[in-house]
Design a protein around this nucleic acid. Structure first.
Length: 883
RNA sequence: GGGCGCGUAGCUCAGUUGGUUAGAGCGCCUGCUUCACACGCAGGAGGUCGUAGGUUCGAGUCCUGCCGCGCCCACCA
């Protein structure tokens, strides 16, 4: 069988998995450090190891892959480093849920056994991401795949921790943190999601000791009153000047607590009196420090009331709230209850209402790290695209707060700190110490906590390349060239990578950051599991083909915008792939018929107008594609390729070539041109649609001995100045105009498409020569038999279509003229209005003196065209037989 | 409470520094089984660019107010 035989219908399922596998097996994308070329490197934003890919990943990976493939084809030494993140809380939650199904929990299992179970889980499900990425065509270097808990990366984590500790940039202390009672761990500020929730503002009366009056405090959390250790008034608030130093009787607890003067109380808000609960509110915590107030913790780590809560001990915090309010009401101490919106802090992962608690945690002092990170962006050493994210970055960095990095979890990087059981000294070290450096006691206990997942992610661009060792990889690929990621992790990840990269390596981790949009569904809704509107990449990939989904994503991926992904869009992208497939099929069938063997030909002579034209258009397409990729304008890339391949190559070039083939009963010498252009177009398309292009290209190249192993290693076509041919583009446009004019009239006259029309074309010089020279093309593509004449059509000839370049006279049945008449009238109306406004402009002295010459000249020459057109349209209308 | 973004054809969106009848895909209408493709071919309709002002010789594009929508950040009980 001929090697180039293609099935009639494009069925990507037949070949996509095959190429995906081959790309990996042939190690095509493994990058040697001694390879030639300038470096272009990028590290993947590591997906959660236990997860599976969603559309957001697919968008991200498609954009990365298109860029990486393009750079590789440009000859760069190109690395896309893949890998996954251990995702502390998320993974631990998943495994705990599994354990729960077996009736187990991690505490009963013990730390060691639990960790073993998580690793086991990782081994079983951690490969999903990789398999999916391979299937989606990601051209990454799997020999350099990394996981944040790999030994090397763990080593980097420890190194950074120790260095920062020694520099005083990591400290341990007792502060108020966001505590998740369900996850049983502290969280950083970023892991708190605020949700506006309807609640109440309870106004509670506190009796003032020694006076017959109350102070009324307002609170959204009445249960915390059990832990009040003061009430505060503003020092300048004249209403309460006399009360400073007095005490109030704390209801329910029957404790006396002082009235303090502090800025905490805003005289404008409520009664101007605020209860102070240093153990359960960040502001109160600070106030408590200022006034040396005791902290009474009434809510425990599990979210229920502690023994300090008296008779409420053991109750869930929300139940305690109900009871406290009820009891206060019984005592007549509730002044009023107002409905009130509160921004409740919830756990990002499990949506449990967080509890601010005082606890001892590890923190990163961020200010000293933020300053160089801000400067790097200010100085343009890192550039955000779209630029608008720069502002967001600065905003956050300027107001950065210390980062709580300890988590009370078991899955992650254990904090390298040991506490001596004898002298209680803290030792932070790279390797596990045998004895306490201070008192030499051997009884050391390692801190049980692990680090925030994002701590290791922050090191990703260099820890994956071997840091802190001075490796060949690090020297070659760091700093990386580009980061492509989503705005949702700008603070979590991007900002911290910049801080850590500068601190640890003295260099920026990447030079550019392209921030992509969100994938949304047809209703512009964010895709989410709870909404049930997720599109599963593997499902649609199976249905439409990976290439089609990739193209559908790219078509919508304009910088700074979200990406709307619909079935229709994927379907039309699939149709595009099918179109390319069939164009190839047509070419291959003709080659087969003429005994041309598969090859990558040099171009033949360009004698024919259509050859000169398509080469010129190819060059413009190459220009547009390169520019689009350079600027991350993926939608422009898709658009340029679509326009060129479908509407220029297929619709016109191949259609004309069909005639040539037929004239010569087969391929003529110019088959070289057809194949040449098609092969170049495949290469241009490859970054967007790697599978289809590889499949077709391999068939084309089958007979070539000296050739790259894959289209992925072929050169990306560059604009080729000698191919630019303005005259050919102008002539082709005119030829198209003539053909379209005839087709248009035929359709309007409702002439049977199969019945040949007869007519005459009047034109001057160049246009006339052109039309005469392409009489056969016009005849076949428009199904019209034209005679050609110099000059313009005589009056009364029945001109049906007139342009500045030609008059077209067609013999058509005198029926159906009404539609034509209306059309001409409309055309005349439009022309008149454009001419009027152009004239007005050209008579405006202000305009003439201020507008640049090329604008006025442009308008002047257009006006001449409009006027000529108007005259012709008017005479065409007059020449129509009366209705 | 601050900050950002959006409102362009029935739908989803482009429109790079203000400049010459505002574009695409899908959908819609008409006609075609033309020997690569009906996942197709040919033709067509459809927009006073949210609104009111302003700057300018010239505004979809720049500025201001307003209306509608979305997002991010924020310790005021």
């Amino acid at each position: 069988m001929f090697p180039m035989h293609l099935e009639k219908v494009y069925e990507p399922q037949r070949f996509e998995p095959r190429w995906a596998q081959w790309w990996v097996e042939s190690r095509l994308f493994e990058c040697r450090t001694d390879a030639p070329g300038t470096v272009f490197s990028l590290v993947i934003p590591p997906p959660n190891v236990t997860g599976s890919l969603h559309m957001g990943h697919m968008l991200e990976h498609t954009e990365i892959d298109a860029t990486i493939r393009w750079r590789r084809m440009l000859g760069y030494k190109t690395l896309w480093l893949p890998g996954t993140d251990h995702a502390g809380i998320a993974t631990q939650m998943v495994v705990e849920r599994e354990l729960a199904k077996e009736g187990l929990d991690r505490r009963r299992l013990g730390r060691e056994e639990f960790e073993r179970r998580v690793w086991q889980w990782k081994e079983t499900y951690g490969g999903t991401i990789k398999r999916q990425m391979i299937r989606l065509g990601a051209s990454c270097d799997w020999s350099r795949e990394r996981f944040t808990l790999d030994p090397g990366l763990s080593n980097a984590v420890r190194e950074v921790f120790v260095r920062l500790y020694e520099k005083g940039l990591i400290y341990r202390g007792e502060y108020m943190v966001n505590w998740c009672p369900r996850c049983q761990t502290a969280l950083s500020d970023l892991e708190v999601v605020r949700e506006d929730t309807p609640g109440n503002l309870w106004h509670i009366r506190y009796p003032v000791n020694g006076l017959d009056r109350f102070l009324v405090v307002a609170t959204t959390r009445p249960e915390t009153m059990l832990g009040d250790t003061a009430v505060a008034v503003n020092p300048r608030d004249e209403r309460y000047l006399g009360l400073h130093g007095r005490t109030v009787r704390l209801p329910l607890m029957e404790r006396d607590i002082p009235i303090i003067a502090d800025e905490l109380a805003d005289p404008e808000f409520g009664t101007g009196v605020v209860k102070v609960t240093p153990a359960h509110d960040p502001n109160d915590f600070e106030a408590g420090r200022r006034h040396n107030l005791p902290k009474i913790q009434v809510i425990g780590e599990n979210g229920s009331m502690t023994s300090e809560a008296g008779r409420y001990a053991g109750l869930d915090r929300f139940e305690a709230r109900r009871r406290v309010v009820a009891d206060l009401e019984d005592l007549g101490l509730i002044e009023k209850i107002e409905p009130y919106q509160v921004a409740l802090g919830k756990c990002q992962r499990c949506k449990t209402v967080l509890e601010p608690l005082v606890s001892t945690q590890w923190f990163v002092r961020t200010k000293p790290l933020a300053e160089p990170a801000i400067r790097a962006v200010e100085q343009g050493r890192i550039r955000f695209i779209p630029e608008t994210w720069t502002k967001v970055y600065f905003e956050w960095m300027h107001n950065i707060r210390d980062w709580c990095i300890s988590r009370q979890l078991w899955w992650g990087h254990r904090i390298p700190a040991w506490y001596c059981a004898d002298c209680s000294a803290t030792t932070v070290a790279r390797t596990t110490p045998e004895r306490c450096p201070r008192c030499a006691a051997p009884r050391l206990e390692q801190d049980p906590d692990v680090l925030d997942t994002w701590f290791s992610s922050a090191l990703w661009p260099f820890s994956t390349l071997g840091w802190p060792e001075d490796t060949e990889d690090l020297r070659t690929f760091y700093p990386t060239s580009l980061l492509i990621t989503g705005f949702d992790i700008l603070f979590f990840w991007v900002a911290r990578m910049i801080m850590m990269g500068l601190e640890c390596t003295g260099e920026v981790p990447f030079r550019e950051v392209y921030i992509h949009g969100l994938v949304r569904d047809a209703e512009r809704q964010k895709m989410s599991k709870t909404r049930g509107n997720v599109i599963d990449p593997l499902e649609v990939t199976e249905k439409y083909g990976t290439d089609a989904v990739r193209l559908a994503l790219l078509m919508g991926a304009a910088p700074g915008t979200d990406i709307v992904l619909t079935e229709e869009r994927m379907e039309s992208a699939r149709n595009f792939a099918n179109k390319i497939w069939n164009a190839a099929r047509f070419l291959f069938l003709n080659m087969e018929r003429c005994g041309v063997t598969p090859c990558l030909p040099e171009p033949g002579e360009r004698e024919m107008l259509e050859d000169r034209w398509i080469f010129s258009r190819l060059t413009r397409c190459a220009e547009a594609a390169n520019r689009a990729l350079e600027q991350y304008r993926y939608h422009d890339l898709a658009q340029a390729l679509w326009q060129f391949l479908w509407h220029e190559f297929c619709d016109w070039y191949v259609e004309i070539k069909k005639l040539r083939f037929r004239e010569n009963s087969g391929l003529t010498a110019d088959w070289r041109n057809v194949l040449f252009v098609f092969e170049r177009a495949l290469r241009l398309l490859h970054p967007a649609m790697p599978f289809l292009t590889e499949e077709l290209w391999q068939r084309l190249a089958a007979g070539e001995a000296a050739r790259p192993a894959s289209i992925a290693l072929a050169a990306y076509p560059q604009p080729d100045a000698p191919y630019l041919d303005e005259a050919a583009e102008r002539d082709m446009a005119l030829l198209q105009e003539i053909i379209i004019a005839v087709r248009n009239l035929r359709a309007q006259m409702k002439v049977d498409p199969k019945a040949p029309l007869e007519g005459a074309l009047y034109a001057q010089n160049r246009a006339l020569d052109l039309a005469r020279g392409h009489a056969e093309v016009i005849r076949r593509l428009a199904n019209v038999e034209l005679s050609f004449h110099a000059g313009t059509a005589p009056r009364g000839e029945g001109v049906l279509r007139a342009t500045p370049d030609f008059d077209l006279v067609l013999r058509v049945p005198a029926t159906q003229l009404e539609a034509l008449r209306r059309r001409l009238e409309k055309e005349i109306r439009q022309l008149e209005s454009v001419i009027a406004s152009s004239r007005r402009q050209l008579e405006d002295r202000e305009f003439l003196s201020r507008a640049p010459a090329h604008v006025t000249e442009g308008i002047r020459s257009k006006l001449a065209d409009y006027e000529a057109q108007l005259i012709k349209s008017r005479s065409a209308l007059e020449a129509l037989p009366p209705a």
